[in-house]
Lab assay of single mutants.
Amino acid sequence: MDLSALRVEEVQNVINAMQKILECPICLELIKEPVSTKCDHIFCKFCMLKLLNQKKGPSQCPLCKNDITKRSLQESTRFSQLVEELLKIICAFQLDTGLEYANSYNFAKKENNSPEHLKDEVSIIQSMGYRNRAKRLLQSEPENPSLQETSLSVQLSNLGTVRTLRTKQRIQPQKTSVYIELGSDSSEDTVNKATYCSVGDQELLQITPQGTRDEISLDSAKKAACEFSETDVTNTEHHQPSNNDLNTTEKRAAERHPEKYQGSSVSNLHVEPCGTNTHASSLQHENSSLLLTKDRMNVEKAEFCNKSKQPGLARSQHNRWAGSKETCNDRRTPSTEKKVDLNADPLCERKEWNKQKLPCSENPRDTEDVPWITLNSSIQKVNEWFSRSDELLGSDDSHDGESESNAKVADVLDVLNEVDEYSGSSEKIDLLASDPHEALICKSERVHSKSVESNIEDKIFGKTYRKKASLPNLSHVTENLIIGAFVTEPQIIQERPLTNKLKRKRRPTSGL
């Protein structure tokens, strides 16, 4: 017993010596996670971090007073192994002897410093981030199933929210409404489509400006004509009531908005009720001829604005009016007729031209339509002016008669200019590109209106002035400009410049 007691005391002394060697000089306990400095002193990692955080910048070693920084600290694995072995020896000594260790306080702390507990403390002390800490805590505590279930439920809930957000973003663009038309193969669909197009076009005519009305009406008319041609002859009974509906809707729209509806009346003529396609083609032919005449008058307007600064050229074209007008009339009417003589009366030419125009518009179905009313009214106005011209010709002399006839021709041009508003800008460009020769010939008609105004002003003063002067240069210039014009009389060319000069002198006297 005595020997055993001596041996136990010796073992205890050895353990105490080893414990003092492996103590931390700051906390005076076994080193936890030993860290060595540049001066080869060993301290606990937790104690050194606490010391360095007390001051900004480098701190001093507690043993040798040298500078220490966080970067200079290094882990010493050898001392950590020695500490672990010492703890194992102490545990074995207690089991063999059955005696508690003399320094129970220190031993209890040593026992608490088992490797499992050290790992837990290291995970908390090290600044490795929240995710690494959570992982280490889960690994160190596998015995708690409640914690695992809560963490898994949190992760699953987070994943569910992310997935639901993604699915919502994908589903939202798919919620856009999609309209699908289910059509049938019955023959009544074509008639319904035609009526739908006509009503939609009328609404567009009321909303859209004048520049786009003609294009819309032309497209709708083409669509309706194609649909009529596709149907068989057996379905004509269905077409006639639908066309009557079209007429009623167009008349109502014309009564409500007459000014807006006139812009599309000329282009919509071939959508009118037709028994066969031949009647629609004839109407299209007549409309094309009318559009040609209207576009020519538009060309004359532009030329008149350009040549208004040259009064000499405008005056020299006075007698070329009849010849150029004959050529335009021959090209406007498709019928083959002989040219009228140069010395014939211009009023007779106008009456013949009106007689040619009237039969074209005397179809029984055309008179029933609303768009032809505008053309009939313009023709009636022309006839009224010609009836007035006959009365004026009986009273005035030959020279005054010529000037009045020219004035009436200008009035006719004004009437025809009203129809110019109905034609589109695209048709003007096509006419100029296809028929430049006709445009040059028809330019002379509009330029002549300037000389007509001068004659009217001469009649106000009650006299006409003449001068025997020749202007050969002007006649040559005008002959080169206009290709299809005829030779003019030299006496009238000489008379016109004198009248304008005298007018300039006598205007201030009349004002006084």
Score class of each variant (00 low, 15 high):
Asp2Pro: 04
Ser4Thr: 06
Leu6Ser: 02
Leu6Asn: 04
Arg7Trp: 03
Glu10Cys: 05
Glu10Arg: 14
Val11Asp: 00
Val11Phe: 14
Val14Asp: 01
Val14Ile: 15
Ile15Gly: 00
Asn16Gln: 09
Asn16His: 14
Ala17Glu: 09
Met18Lys: 00
Met18Gln: 01
Met18Asn: 00
Gln19Lys: 11
Gln19Thr: 15
Lys20Phe: 00
Lys20Arg: 15
Ile21Asp: 03
Ile21Gly: 07
Leu22Gln: 00
Leu22Asn: 02
Leu22Ile: 00
Leu22Trp: 02
Pro25Val: 01
Pro25Gly: 14
Ile26Val: 07
Ile26Arg: 02
Ile26Trp: 11
Ile26Pro: 01
Cys27Trp: 02
Leu28Trp: 04
Leu28Met: 15
Leu28Asp: 15
Leu28Cys: 14
Leu28Ile: 14
Leu28Thr: 14
Leu30Gln: 13
Leu30Pro: 07
Ile31Gln: 02
Ile31Thr: 01
Lys32Gly: 06
Glu33Arg: 13
Pro34Ile: 03
Pro34His: 15
Val35Gln: 12
Val35Cys: 08
Val35Gly: 01
Val35Phe: 01
Thr37Tyr: 08
Lys38Glu: 15
Cys39Asp: 02
Cys39Ser: 00
Cys39Met: 00
Asp40Leu: 10
Ile42Trp: 06
Ile42Cys: 15
Phe43Lys: 00
Phe43Pro: 01
Cys44Gly: 08
Lys45Ser: 04
Lys45Val: 07
Phe46Met: 08
Phe46Arg: 07
Cys47Gly: 00
Met48Thr: 07
Leu49Phe: 09
Leu52Tyr: 01
Asn53Tyr: 07
Gln54Cys: 12
Lys55Cys: 15
Lys55Gly: 12
Lys55Phe: 15
Lys55Ile: 12
Lys56Ala: 06
Gly57Arg: 12
Pro58Cys: 10
Ser59Pro: 06
Ser59Met: 08
Ser59Val: 15
Gln60Thr: 14
Cys61Lys: 00
Lys65Cys: 14
Lys65Glu: 03
Asn66Ser: 15
Asn66Val: 13
Asp67His: 03
Asp67Met: 13
Ile68Cys: 13
Thr69Asn: 15
Thr69Gly: 12
Lys70Ser: 02
Lys70Val: 00
Arg71Lys: 14
Glu75Ser: 05
Glu75Leu: 03
Ser76Ala: 11
Ser76Leu: 01
Thr77Ile: 15
Thr77Lys: 14
Thr77Arg: 12
Thr77Glu: 11
Arg78Thr: 06
Arg78Gly: 03
Arg78Lys: 09
Arg78Pro: 13
Phe79Arg: 01
Phe79Ala: 05
Ser80Arg: 14
Gln81Ile: 05
Leu82Met: 03
Leu82Arg: 00
Val83Ser: 01
Val83Gln: 12
Glu84Ser: 03
Glu84Gly: 10
Glu84Trp: 00
Glu84Arg: 11
Glu85Met: 06
Glu85Asp: 00
Lys88His: 11
Ile89Cys: 02
Ile90His: 14
Cys91Leu: 15
Phe93Tyr: 01
Leu95Arg: 04
Asp96Gly: 01
Thr97Asn: 01
Thr97Cys: 00
Gly98Leu: 01
Gly98Cys: 03
Leu99Phe: 11
Leu99Asn: 06
Glu100Leu: 09
Glu100Ala: 05
Tyr101Ser: 03
Ala102Asn: 14
Ala102Trp: 05
Ala102Cys: 12
Asn103Lys: 05
Asn103Gln: 02
Asn103Leu: 13
Ser104Lys: 12
Ser104Cys: 08
Ser104Pro: 13
Tyr105Gly: 09
Tyr105Met: 06
Asn106Tyr: 11
Ala108Cys: 10
Ala108His: 04
Lys110Pro: 15
Lys110Thr: 12
Lys110Cys: 10
Lys110Asn: 10
Glu111His: 06
Glu111Asn: 12
Asn112Thr: 07
Asn112Val: 07
Asn113Ala: 06
Asn113Met: 10
Asn113Lys: 11
Ser114Glu: 15
Pro115His: 04
Pro115Ile: 08
Glu116Gln: 12
Glu116His: 09
Glu116Asn: 01
Glu116Ser: 14
His117Leu: 03
His117Val: 11
His117Pro: 01
Leu118Asn: 09
Asp120Met: 14
Asp120Ile: 15
Asp120Asn: 04
Asp120Trp: 15
Glu121Pro: 09
Glu121Thr: 00
Val122Ala: 15
Val122Lys: 03
Val122Leu: 02
Val122Tyr: 07
Ser123Asp: 04
Ser123Leu: 08
Ser123Arg: 06
Ser123Gly: 09
Ser123Glu: 14
Ile124Met: 14
Ile125Asp: 11
Gln126Ser: 13
Gln126Arg: 07
Gln126Val: 09
Ser127Glu: 05
Gly129Arg: 09
Gly129Ala: 10
Gly129Asp: 07
Gly129Gln: 14
Arg131Ala: 08
Arg131Tyr: 03
Asn132Lys: 03
Arg133Gly: 08
Arg133Cys: 09
Arg133Pro: 07
Ala134Val: 10
Ala134Glu: 07
Ala134Tyr: 13
Lys135Ile: 03
Leu137Phe: 03
Leu137Ser: 12
Leu137Cys: 14
Leu138Gln: 02
Gln139Thr: 01
Gln139Val: 08
Ser140Val: 09
Ser140Trp: 06
Glu141Val: 13
Glu141Gln: 08
Glu141Met: 01
Glu141Phe: 02
Glu141Arg: 06
Pro142His: 07
Glu143Asn: 14
Glu143Trp: 09
Glu143Phe: 07
Glu143Gln: 12
Glu143Met: 03
Asn144Val: 05
Asn144Tyr: 05
Asn144Met: 04
Pro145Val: 11
Pro145Tyr: 13
Pro145Thr: 14
Pro145Gln: 04
Pro145His: 08
Ser146Pro: 06
Leu147Val: 11
Leu147Asn: 04
Gln148Ser: 08
Glu149Ser: 06
Glu149His: 12
Glu149Arg: 10
Thr150Gly: 11
Thr150Lys: 15
Thr150Val: 04
Ser151Leu: 08
Ser151Glu: 10
Ser151Gln: 07
Ser151Asp: 07
Leu152Met: 04
Val154Trp: 01
Gln155Gly: 10
Leu156Ala: 09
Ser157Tyr: 13
Ser157Ile: 05
Ser157Lys: 04
Asn158Met: 02
Asn158Glu: 02
Asn158Gln: 10
Asn158Ala: 12
Asn158Trp: 11
Leu159Asp: 13
Leu159Glu: 02
Leu159Ser: 14
Gly160Trp: 13
Gly160Glu: 08
Thr161Met: 05
Thr161Glu: 11
Thr161Phe: 15
Thr161Lys: 02
Thr161Asp: 07
Val162Glu: 08
Val162Lys: 12
Val162Thr: 03
Arg163Ser: 13
Thr164Gln: 03
Thr164Ser: 13
Leu165Cys: 11
Leu165Gly: 08
Leu165Ala: 13
Arg166Val: 07
Arg166Cys: 03
Arg166Glu: 09
Arg166Ala: 08
Arg166Ser: 04
Arg166Phe: 11
Thr167Arg: 06
Thr167Cys: 07
Thr167Gly: 15
Lys168Leu: 11
Lys168Ile: 10
Lys168Gly: 08
Lys168Glu: 09
Gln169Arg: 08
Gln169Phe: 02
Arg170Pro: 09
Arg170Thr: 09
Arg170Cys: 11
Ile171Val: 11
Ile171Ala: 09
Ile171Asn: 00
Gln172Met: 14
Pro173Asn: 02
Gln174Lys: 15
Gln174Ser: 12
Gln174Ile: 10
Gln174Gly: 09
Lys175Trp: 06
Lys175Asp: 09
Thr176Pro: 09
Thr176Lys: 01
Thr176Val: 07
Ser177Trp: 11
Val178Cys: 03
Val178Glu: 11
Tyr179Thr: 12
Tyr179Lys: 12
Tyr179Leu: 11
Tyr179Gly: 08
Tyr179Gln: 12
Glu181Val: 08
Leu182Ala: 07
Leu182Thr: 14
Leu182Ser: 02
Gly183Leu: 08
Gly183Ser: 06
Gly183His: 07
Asp185Ile: 04
Asp185Cys: 11
Glu188Ala: 06
Glu188Met: 08
Asp189Cys: 09
Asp189Asn: 11
Asp189Ser: 13
Asp189Ala: 09
Thr190Ala: 12
Val191Gly: 09
Val191Gln: 06
Val191Asn: 04
Val191Arg: 09
